[in-house]
Simulated scan of single mutants.
Amino acid sequence: MASSSAGFVTGLTAAALATIGVLGYQASASAPADTGRARVSGTPAPGASKAPRDRRHPDALPAGSGRGERVVYSVDDDRVWLVGADNKVQRTFRVTPSTVDPAPGTYAITSRSKQVTGSDGIPVEHVVRFTSVEGVVIGFSAAVNGSTAKPDPDERTGGIRETRADGDAMWRFATIGQRVVVVP
């Protein structure tokens, strides 16, 4: 009986993995041709709609940013929202953008590092990565020295800088696989 149960569980695991693979393939097949490219101007990627903002409440969650637990990052507003499963904002904060922006779309956290040296040479902590653009890895991080200075515009960097407190919150919230929704 035990081998029958093990076979059943193995079969369910294989079926779940196959389903995930099919969904991943479908998602990648329907991605716009420019997904993952650096944003060259202040305009959204072709085909991306500008999420309506409540200008009286600039920290309000952008409409059209999805549902459920996720990280929402607005490239135009330089703001992040950590949204719980109940679709309520748990925390929102301003960030200092990198010189290379991800295209609007839905991503997932792919890797994390407790402490490393950033692409700009600054020691950073609580690094949460979710995509790359033309070889530049994009993710959220906090400088160990607490600085959030704008990066050198002549350098191609992917670190979206947070304060250390916001970096701690992101680290606790954004584990591997967590959705990241990038809006214009």
Score class of each variant (00 low, 15 high):
S113C: 05
V116M: 15
E125I: 03
G121K: 10
G121W: 13
T163Y: 02
S98H: 08
V133K: 03
G159L: 08
P44E: 05
V75M: 06
P62K: 09
N87F: 04
T110Q: 11
A60K: 09
G68L: 12
L82F: 02
V124H: 12
A63P: 02
S111H: 05
A60T: 14
G105E: 04
T106E: 14
V144S: 10
G47A: 13
F130W: 08
R156K: 11
G159W: 00
S98V: 08
G146C: 12
G105C: 06
G64E: 09
N145L: 05
P123G: 07
R56G: 01
T96R: 11
T96S: 04
A149W: 15
G146V: 11
G121Q: 15
D152T: 11
D120A: 03
P46M: 07
G158R: 08
T96D: 03
D86V: 07
A143Y: 05
P102R: 04
S49A: 09
T35M: 08
R164M: 05
N87I: 14
H57Y: 07
S74N: 09
V100S: 03
S147K: 12
S113D: 10
R56V: 04
D59I: 02
S41P: 09
T117E: 12
S41L: 06
T163M: 12
S141C: 07
D59E: 15
R129C: 03
D59R: 12
V100M: 11
G42Q: 09
D154Y: 12
E69N: 06
P102E: 05
P58D: 09
V80S: 02
R70Q: 00
F140D: 14
P104C: 05
G139P: 11
V72M: 08
P123I: 12
Q90G: 11
R91P: 02
S74I: 08
D120N: 14
T96W: 00
S65C: 10
R37D: 15
P46N: 07
Q90S: 09
G159Y: 06
Y73G: 01
D120G: 06
V127G: 05
S49K: 13
Y107V: 00
T117K: 12
V133H: 04
P153Q: 15
G64S: 04
D76I: 05
V100A: 02
P44V: 07
T99S: 02
T99P: 00
A108K: 00
Y107S: 03
N145K: 10
G66T: 00
G36S: 08
A108L: 04
T148K: 07
R79N: 11
G84S: 13
G159P: 00
F140M: 14
S98N: 15
E155G: 04
P104M: 01
L61K: 10
G36H: 08
V40S: 12
D101A: 10
A108C: 04
T157V: 14
G139W: 05
V75H: 01
G42K: 08
S65L: 10
T148R: 15
A48H: 14
V75A: 04
V80K: 04
P153A: 10
R67T: 14
T163P: 11
S113K: 09
R53G: 01
A45E: 15
F140G: 07
H126C: 06
